Computed example of a mutant assay.
Amino acid sequence: MEFEDLAEGCIAEILSHTTPMDACKLSLVSRGFCSAAESDSVWSAFLLNLTSIIPPSSFPSSTSKKALYFNLCNHPTIIDQGKRSVQLDKKTGKQCYMLSARNLDIICGDAVHHWEWTSLPESRFEVVAVLRAVCWFDISGKISTLALSSNTHYAVFLVFKMMNASGFHYHPTVISVGISGGNTNTKYVCLDLNLKDNRLSELQCPKVRSDGWLEIEMGEFLNSGTEEGQVEMKVMETTSHIQKCGFILEGIELRPKHLICETSS
């Protein structure tokens, strides 16, 4: 018996143990493969890890599992009472998260003369944090490794905007990423594209995302998924004592290392 002569259900079972990219490629083999690759049983397997995060009752019953999968790839879903979003990597089905500004620890974040919480139409979250004036710039966040896809190399990005910003172009900002109890990667970056100090010109600078926000890579880590830990992320500039303003924080995003958000220079 040829592989293509297997029953559609058998082919679907085999495809469910591959990746979304493999299933799409194999659908071109024959009509039988195409029919199996379109089946809900295949795409339900690729959605399995999301059922504990997004209630199945929130999914439209009339939508095919394949259509639902690509919808979750192309559109972030807001979870945890609006504090973070989850999205799928189209190629692998692995999970991408963004922690909103409300899900992060911001020093003086509740002091109205230092930070303002407001809504922006271009943000996926209900509110963002707008820096009014601080000298002590300190933002940190955590997420459990168990919430992330296992055996996955993740990159972490600070997502923000600058609007009439000042105070960031004279002194580097320190950013770090690490798993609790392990090594922490720390580096110096420049958050403001309008450099005033040539000494900062050699530092990593933000890039423009396709959604209009800026992002800068904070670091990366390998999530083995074998035991629970905390991914700890920090953004800090507390040594210059220069007053800073005009920074708009949407959040911190974690996505599989190969997944690059389209940017422009």
Rank of each mutant, 00 (worst) to 15 (best):
I260C: 08
S224I: 09
L259T: 08
K66F: 00
K161G: 10
N49T: 15
K91T: 10
H169Y: 07
A37N: 02
N223T: 14
L249G: 11
A67L: 07
P172L: 10
I107T: 15
G212E: 05
L146V: 11
A7E: 01
I14W: 04
I260G: 06
L72R: 01
K65P: 01
L88N: 07
N151I: 02
R84P: 01
R199M: 03
M98R: 09
K187P: 07
C96A: 11
T51M: 08
T92A: 12
I14D: 03
S64V: 02
W136N: 02
V174G: 03
L72H: 01
N74H: 04
V174I: 05
T173M: 12
T186P: 06
E202S: 06
E228V: 07
A67G: 04
M163T: 10
M236A: 12
W136H: 00
K196Q: 15
E2D: 00
K94S: 14
M233T: 06
T239N: 13
W136F: 08
N185P: 01
E2A: 06
L254G: 11
L148Y: 14
M218V: 04
Y188T: 15
D105S: 15
S39T: 07
D22F: 08
S166Q: 12
K234F: 10
H171M: 05
I78Y: 02
H114A: 14
E122K: 06
A36M: 04
